[in-house]
Simulated assay, not measured.
Amino acid sequence: MTLDWRPVESVRIVAEAYDPDTETIYVEFPKGGVQWWYSACPPDVWEQFTADGQSRGQFIHQVLNSKPNGRFA
């Protein structure tokens, strides 16, 4: 699997990616380059997460943390 990582200007994350086949959002955090996955994210959740003006940190806290997730190796 090859992910199309996009850099992000955010305090909380430095990059993001989406796999529509598995409906999984991937994020990279600035400290140590830790990458995390969040599954059960249909395209509308990805669109909300990446919407202009959307706080990535707030969205992770309010929406993504309640979904299945874990460290991406």
Rank of each mutant, 00 (worst) to 15 (best):
Gly33Trp: 03
Pro42Arg: 10
Asn69Gln: 12
Gly32Gln: 06
Glu16Trp: 06
Pro30Ser: 08
Leu3His: 02
Ala73Asp: 15
Ser66Thr: 15
Asp52Ser: 15
Phe29Lys: 09
Ala51Cys: 08
Ser39Cys: 10
Val11Ser: 15
Cys41Gly: 01
Asp4Glu: 13
Ala73Ser: 15
Glu16Val: 04
Gly53Pro: 02
Ala51Thr: 07
Trp46Phe: 12
Val8Ala: 06
Glu9Leu: 10
Trp46Gly: 02
Thr2His: 12
Ile13Gln: 04
Gln54Tyr: 09
Asp44Met: 14
His61Asn: 15
Ile60Thr: 01
Glu47Lys: 12
Glu28Ala: 03
Gln48Glu: 14
Gly32Thr: 05
Ala73Cys: 15
Arg12Cys: 11
Thr2Glu: 11
Ser39His: 07
Ile13Leu: 09
Ala51Gly: 07
Gly53Glu: 10
Gly53Leu: 08
Gln58Leu: 13
Ile60Cys: 02
Thr24Lys: 01
Thr24Pro: 01
Asp52His: 13
Asn65Tyr: 13
Ala17Arg: 01
His61Tyr: 15
Tyr18Val: 00
Gly53His: 08
Gly57Val: 04
Tyr26Met: 04
Cys41Glu: 00
Gly33Pro: 04
Thr22Gly: 10
Ala51Met: 06
Pro68Gln: 11
Glu16Ile: 02
Gln54Trp: 10
Pro43Cys: 08
Val27Arg: 00
Asn65Gly: 14
Phe72Gln: 06
Trp36Pro: 03
Lys67Thr: 07
Thr2Lys: 11
Asp52Ala: 13
Gly32Val: 07
Pro43Tyr: 02
